[in-house]
Design a binder for these strands. Structure first.
Lengths: 197, 197
DNA sequence: CCAGGGTGAGACAATCATGTCTCACATGCG
DNA sequence: CGCATGTGAGACATGATTGTCTCACCCTGG
């Protein structure tokens, strides 16, 4: 790491810094600005030139997470086709951002009093709308509220990301595990759970 | 403040302190020793008399969490009857400890290098054994590993506890939501998902 | 070649949480 | 009543992190 070729550019790539910070903070949520800087291969001074402080860094990470989430939501085309297929697409598209989301999901507990970033509310609503659509079309059961299904998706994404990062489950299984558990649950159903679209 | 009525007892109840600390740290994982003390209605000096430091406090919380978990596992009688019913009992019994577990679940990310408390490994194994039993009896699908189902249960407990504490879902629905989603998933199954034991 | 922007390294003060200590006070008990 | 125990309040030093600053360096472009 950090031996990228900046031979011709002196400018630091803020996006690279953010992604490195996300990877580090996902594993160690209390990492120091110094640790973040070292992980990104830059000095603390430069890190502080790009992000005024730790708050600004976390806010930038939040913006990145929101942007990646919305990109995943767009790419998943949630309002097309069967809802269950849309859930599969959503999990697949959001997989690359799962670690970042896991970090932000726990970090959000810190923003207790403050105003929730409006971006999260919109993302929540888009995901909840998908579950609502599935309920209205008869695909999804109606005794689990869309809000809870949305929260459960976040929780599964977070535990999946952690389990992968700790090597407890294979990275390749990430999408399948989460989508299948969220959709079909642990029970073995008499009617095969895959073909009913 | 600090005019609480200790009229007859001068001794602080360490268990009460621990539970108050758990409730606070669940909402604000970075709460100060001073905040924890104030939340428990005692002074920082007294808090420090009972728990040598923040580490000791977290360790005590971990021990409490492990104890409550094992108590829940015992009460749920995981090896009796259909595995699906055992999962329901487990979630019901563990509900009261869910907030504490949610805190410890994220806090564990900090204990990266250190040796994992052996208690968690035993709890993990007991839960995984339940899912394994369900798979061998044909109740549970075999394409989701017991390890992942265990992690997923932790994730759902954590998101459920947070969703309840933020008022996004009703506390009364906690057990049902988690157990039903974990077992049956979001899909509406043609064969009724309840009667197959 | 030379000027300028961007960076790394380090010094520095300020802030915060922590851990320890002392002292005064209240309560229970002999 | 007098003592012991446990507590609250606060002072204090320490360490860690942060935010800011300066200076030297390297690279690029004119």
């Amino acid at each position: 790491m950090s031996h990228m070729r900046y031979s011709c550019l002196m400018a630091v790539d803020p996006d690279h810094v953010l992604r490195t910070a996300a990877a580090l903070l996902t594993r160690k949520a209390t990492a120091t600005m110094d640790e973040v800087a070292k992980a990104a291969g830059i000095s603390r001074a430069t890190l502080h030139r790009h992000f005024a402080g730790r708050d600004a860094l976390v806010r930038a990470l939040e913006s990145l997470g929101i942007a990646e989430c919305e990109a995943a939501l767009d790419a998943a085309r949630l309002d097309e086709g069967p809802a269950r297929d849309a859930v599969h697409r959503l999990v697949r598209e959001i997989e690359s951002a799962a670690a970042l989301l896991a970090f932000l999901y726990t970090e959000n507990q810190l923003f207790e009093g403050e105003q929730q970033n409006a971006g999260w509310a919109r993302i929540d609503e888009r995901i909840a709308a998908l579950f609502r659509r599935g309920q209205q079309s008869g695909e999804f059961r109606i005794d689990l509220s869309p809000v809870w299904l949305t929260e459960a998706l976040y929780g599964l994404l977070a535990s999946g990301a952690w389990a992968v990062s700790e090597g407890r489950v294979a990275r390749n299984d990430f999408t399948y595990m989460i989508a299948e558990l969220l959709l079909g649950g642990a029970l073995r159903h008499p009617a095969q759970p895959r073909e009913e679209s």
